[in-house]
Design a protein around this nucleic acid. Structure first.
Lengths: 325, 325
DNA sequence: TTGTAGGCGTTATCAC
DNA sequence: GTGATAACGCCTACAA
């Protein structure tokens, strides 16, 4: 049997409502009694009973994160960061890897106060008026929940400019081109727009996929072109990893021979074969924003802005440098 | 406000304790009233309040799965399968991707009835007498919780024999050799033992890692050897994927020129470039065993066997066939 | 400043 | 068979 506030009350010679107040840091209890109660509670190893609290409070302080597709490292990193971001809040997070409707049922059963989903899966979701926040590309217009997005156009502009300032004029983009995936499309288009602004000729190489090997293989095409670009923007962490490896194997030095900037701003970029200069919303920041958004959605009554485009930032490392020649 | 059993009682003209009984399928209530109550409940959209139930039952029927390192696909598949396996039980699963102690705190807060952890992380866990089941290599002896393991030695024996029966005599093992990782070690040793039994000479190639690329690269060494093996056993899903790709690129046909059998028995093996013959405990079976184990641990009083070695099975596909020559 | 009492939605133990 | 009623552990008016 666990220790309850009644046990503490007995031990501390107060009523259990006083204990309750003290434990909730109410100002209605004298500092000295509060201290005493807190001490006794800790000493007895008191752990509050969530169920009981929930029953009266009508709130669980639990957020459900729906994550049906465990795959890419970047997403995994984001999930981990979101989880971490919750630690500084009163909320806890539970994670479901189930198919959407199953997950929803679980979350309903747990009576979560809110949910986080990824935009791709959000349209199928019949949110039984549970507060919801989505992360991903915000193209749908008929939604009534906030979407946290990143400004991909801005990302590419920053990346291109960074390379431009290093003297690069021949900057290629290597990523997944032939796709319906809104995120990928936004990235290429952002690249093209940025290049146009600087009056540079675009060169894109299709990886045909998002895996490490797709980047690895794309380098062959890129090098068999008559003129080798002086800089490459890789479309994602995995792709850039493949590009980097392929270049290394061909004894092309980074950044001496070719500069490389990757999309995705995650800590793992630091520990790549060559520490990678990268662009994107830092994953910890992203996580923070998502967590803030759902909590705000839950706690604030007034409508909050529905689409929030986060500003990316450039993390400079060693993979990009002055243009050769 | 949600509908409660009292609302149902009023609507159905019975007392709420009768409703409770009917909802719990108690034999103490007449069939006809039960039907009526059930109908009314559904019609009113009744959803039981977990917190209230928990409060009196002292059981949450929730299992926590601790999964601190989101990375390899095989593990992700296992987690997904475990999650699915719980669907047929009264239990729900919550997943934590936090660092161990943080996760433990969360689980304690939720008052989970039991926990599942992976063996590597289990030693740091101070299980506050919460029932626990670990999955992984069972080398530690001083544990007091069940460990679900797979018989890796048996796996390798089956794989080698399968190839032997196809006429192969020169069978190489490609995997991570130079490591402290018990699982990897058991696999190579199993291979060596099986080869010895058949009086075949062993050939091992170290991948130096567990990633796709490590397998890809290992093929170079393997082929630069003067005599090419007629069959390869790949140490894991990722490694075998790399091996397969590398062989394809060298126009070596599978299984005509070289046979390939992979460790890890997950459905994804089916959809590889060449459908992969593989060996290991099928992941759905594994998940089932883990789920059964934790539930048994929770519900059964008597001590259950501490280490359970699961029997692997061979899934025959197209990547392995008769030996050339 | 502290204590009393009622209630949150269920289950379970009794009477009827 | 069915219906009161007392828990479960906690919060929160309201009373003292």
């Amino acid at each position: 049997m666990n220790v309850t506030i009644k046990d503490i009350a007995k031990e501390a010679n107060v009523s259990y409502s006083t204990v309750s107040k003290a434990l909730n840091n109410s100002p209605l209890v004298k500092e000295i009694t509060k201290q005493k109660i807190l001490r006794v509670a800790k000493q007895m190893g008191y752990e509050p009973n969530l169920a009981a609290k929930q029953l009266v409070r009508k709130k669980t302080e639990v957020i459900g994160l729906l994550w049906p597709t465990i795959e890419r490292l970047v997403l995994a990193t984001l999930v981990t960061n979101i989880s971490k971001a919750f630690e500084t809040t009163p909320y806890s997070m539970i994670l479901s890897v189930d198919e959407e409707n199953t997950a929803m049922d679980t979350f309903k059963k747990f009576q979560v106060d809110g949910m986080i989903v990824f935009a791709e899966s959000s349209h199928t979701i019949s949110q039984g008026n549970i507060p919801l926040v989505a992360y991903g590309v915000s193209r749908k217009t008929n939604v009534n929940y906030p979407i946290i997005d990143a400004n991909h156009e801005k990302s590419m502009e920053i990346a291109v400019t960074h390379l431009y300032d290093f003297g690069h004029r021949d900057i290629a983009y290597v990523g997944l081109l032939d796709t319906e995936d809104a995120l990928q499309i936004e990235k290429v288009e952002g690249y093209q727009k940025a290049m146009k602004k600087l009056k540079l000729k675009t060169r894109t190489f299709d990886t045909g996929g998002l895996n490490w090997f797709d980047g690895y293989r794309a380098v062959d095409n890129l090098l068999s072109d008559n003129k080798r670009p002086t800089a490459i923007i890789g479309g994602s962490y995995d792709i850039s990893g493949g590009i980097l490896r392929a270049l290394q194997e061909k004894n092309i030095e980074i950044p001496k021979d070719i500069s490389l900037v990757s999309y995705d701003n995650i800590p793992q970029m630091e520990t790549m074969e060559v520490p990678m200069t990268c662009i994107g919303v830092p994953v910890d920041e992203l996580a923070e924003e998502i967590v803030d958004a759902i909590i705000e959605r839950i706690e604030v009554d007034e409508e909050i802005e529905l689409v929030k485009k986060l500003t990316p930032s450039l993390t400079v490392r060693q993979s990009a440098g002055p243009s050769p020649k």
